[in-house]
Design a protein around this nucleic acid. Structure first.
Lengths: 126, 126
DNA sequence: CTTGACCTTGACAGTGGTGTGAAGGCTGCA
DNA sequence: TGCAGCCTTCACACCACTGTCAAGGTCAAG
């Protein structure tokens, strides 16, 4: 598919898709036109990228992590790189922190919202 | 305490503490010097701000959310603002999304790391 | 052939978060 | 008194992300 279709399928503006490519996160091949041609599997990949970005992970890290997130278990053996491992462990740690942090705050929000609702039961405005 | 001490306690550079103040997230009082004087409870607050920022929530939103995260259940009744409620529900939704997303990816990372470790058992380098 | 919808690259602008440095004020201590 | 170390404001500049516009190429349909 071409960039417009991918943009529409993922909800990510074409501008951003080009940006992700520039940052080395996706690599569509080109038609004779020069048009970008995206494989189907990139839809998932783009969604993953968005999710990671929204979670506060910068593109640079995403680029290093992405190959590890597909993970067909076979891709691993090629590079027993200790630096990579360290980085992954660190990132996983950060993720875990963020998860528990978000959980806490989500629960706090829930409590607050419920308290609001108790204060103004149903839609009984003025 | 003054800005240097707070910076050191929270790990957040003094520059950032001034920035958060500029954004209305914290409001230290001033000494006759002009020096900022921070109450103890701001240590927690700053940590909370950092966590939210790291999780991809912008300062503007944080400013609106913060009062709702302390939540002594009594603070609520004052403002039965439906817009605020809507915003909170939306943010909670985003948080929930991010949580499950992060969980997924954390697990994927874990699998990958374990696979690496199986490929290079212990530290049996060359 | 023309029109319209899509694509291309390139650039400039803006926002949010952060680093850093200049120029100067306050305070405590030798 | 003078220096060291903290503080102040102001400003410039960077990175990451995003929007938008310009100038132009491609292609299918009328």
């Amino acid at each position: 598919m071409r960039i417009g279709e991918l943009a529409q399928k993922t909800g990510v503006p074409a501008r951003m898709l080009r940006y992700y490519e520039e940052q080395g996160l996706i690599a569509p091949r080109r038609l004779q036109n020069g048009y970008r041609e995206y494989e189907d599997y990139l839809v998932h990949r783009v969604r993953k990228i968005r999710g990671l970005l929204d979670s506060g992970i910068p593109t640079r890290i995403i680029g290093d992590m992405l190959p590890c997130l597909n993970n067909t278990e076979a891709t691993v053996v090629a590079d027993p790189d200790p630096e990579l491992r360290e980085m992954l462990v660190e990132q996983r740690g950060k993720m875990t922190e963020r998860i528990s942090f978000l959980e806490q705050n989500r629960d706090a929000l829930t409590r607050y919202i419920e308290a609001m609702d108790r204060a103004v039961p149903a839609s009984a405005a003025s």
